[in-house]
Design a protein around this nucleic acid. Structure first.
Lengths: 224, 224
DNA sequence: GCAAAAAAGTAATCATCGTTCACACCGTGT
DNA sequence: ACACGGTGTGAACGATGATTACTTTTTTGC
């Protein structure tokens, strides 16, 4: 009773507390382990109390997903802000940030993808303009912008989901491995699968185009 | 009692029937709508009967996932067999086949990804040899094979999951749209993001490198 | 100030689900 | 003929999501 600034009623701010407790439970034991009753138990309220704040379990999950989405987008945006402004560096930085989020909080990431319909898009409007400018400057290949955006998004989202879905051989993925894989992907995407003419600038802006990739992208070999 | 070849006992082949009924239910209403009791009801058996064939619900789901995985791999393999043997054509064909499966049976695809741990790999061992040969022939860029394989896998898996997770604006995706998107992605991946020198062979083998992509990859524009 | 209304929580209750257990049924091998 | 193992029955148990009627607290309109 000393000082409860916002604690106005019995609990103060159930609703917010429910979301945070749900986040903790999901992060610890996965979405399937989430139970409204157990949540109410943890917060010391009756089993029916949560229904004053959320229509049903799905509504709570939607709120959780919204919270996760906000953190996700903030982290990606910050990574974009801290990276050099050229298109490839932006792609690399945001890709790495996105994959890192997935590695750090796989369960949260999964909830976000399942519940928050099309919320994974890394700022389509701005990118369009930026990429168009990059193409005009000759920094970017003259491919349709929609196709470029889609390919980049698929590659990063694919890596993230491969990780959180446990589809990569070799157990859980470390942050360093995730970084290396994201880098390798951006390099491949930047360079292209079709061989280039000798003397082509290729993926110069990257650190070491071919070295960091195989050292960590070795996963995939021991699968069969 | 005329001729029931395998129908020996009360039901004949529960277990198989359970898997098929589960597949139908999942395809119609999603995994969350799957209930062991309802399944038993449909098959005219008691609620405890399924437990003679599966330890629990997860075991049934694992069997379902195995069934889906088999069909998925068969379809992808057939597409690979029917496509030209060069590396890029193989990538395109298997990619399109995989995405088509996801579009046709989103719920099945999701169960497969969630339950069947690392089963989405399109034949890593063979590909390694094929790609190495392609690289030696100069048909493929001299990038680390692991990175190439990873990037291709991420792009296709990413597109598939973007579709089944409903992360693409514009409602459900048609088969034609999915084909176009897969094609656009393979083109971008083949060409590379970094501009090429004038006169470079580029993505010649494809039909129309830049035309089919924007017509259908327009999705992403109306998002914001 | 204060009483009415709105917000927040409680306790009891329902339907359903996953799962288990003791028992009954059926074909088979001896 | 008979025991036995694989298969299905039927009735439970515990837990969950959700609803309802009721109480308590906070807010707020006058």
């Amino acid at each position: 009773m000393r000082r409860k600034p916002a604690a106005t009623y019995h609990h103060g701010d159930l609703g917010r507390a429910l979301v945070e407790a749900a986040l903790a439970t999901i992060d610890r034991a996965g979405v399937d382990a989430l139970t409204l009753r157990e949540l109410a138990r943890q917060l010391g309220v009756s089993p029916g109390a949560p229904y004053r704040h959320f229509a049903d379990k799905d509504a709570l999950l939607a709120a959780v997903a919204a919270d996760v989405t906000q953190r996700y987008q903030a982290e990606v945006a910050q990574a974009a802000a801290e990276a050099p402004p050229d298109a490839l560096a932006q792609f690399r930085a945001t890709g790495i940030a996105a994959v890192r989020f997935a590695v750090r909080s796989p369960a949260h990431f999964r909830v976000m993808c399942t519940q928050a319909t099309h919320a994974i898009d890394p700022a389509t409007a701005d990118n369009h303009a930026t990429l168009a400018a990059a193409q005009a400057d000759g920094q970017l290949a003259p491919l349709p912008l929609d196709a470029i955006l889609l390919a980049a998004r698929c590659a990063i989202y694919g890596l993230s989901r491969l990780i959180v879905d446990d589809q990569l051989p070799g157990g859980p993925v470390t942050l360093a491995q995730a970084d290396a894989m994201a880098l390798a992907i951006t390099d491949v995407l930047g360079h292209g699968l079709v061989p280039r003419l000798p003397g082509d600038p290729c993926t110069a802006p990257s650190a070491a185009p071919t070295d960091p990739a195989p050292g960590s992208a070795r996963r995939g070999r021991p699968s069969r």
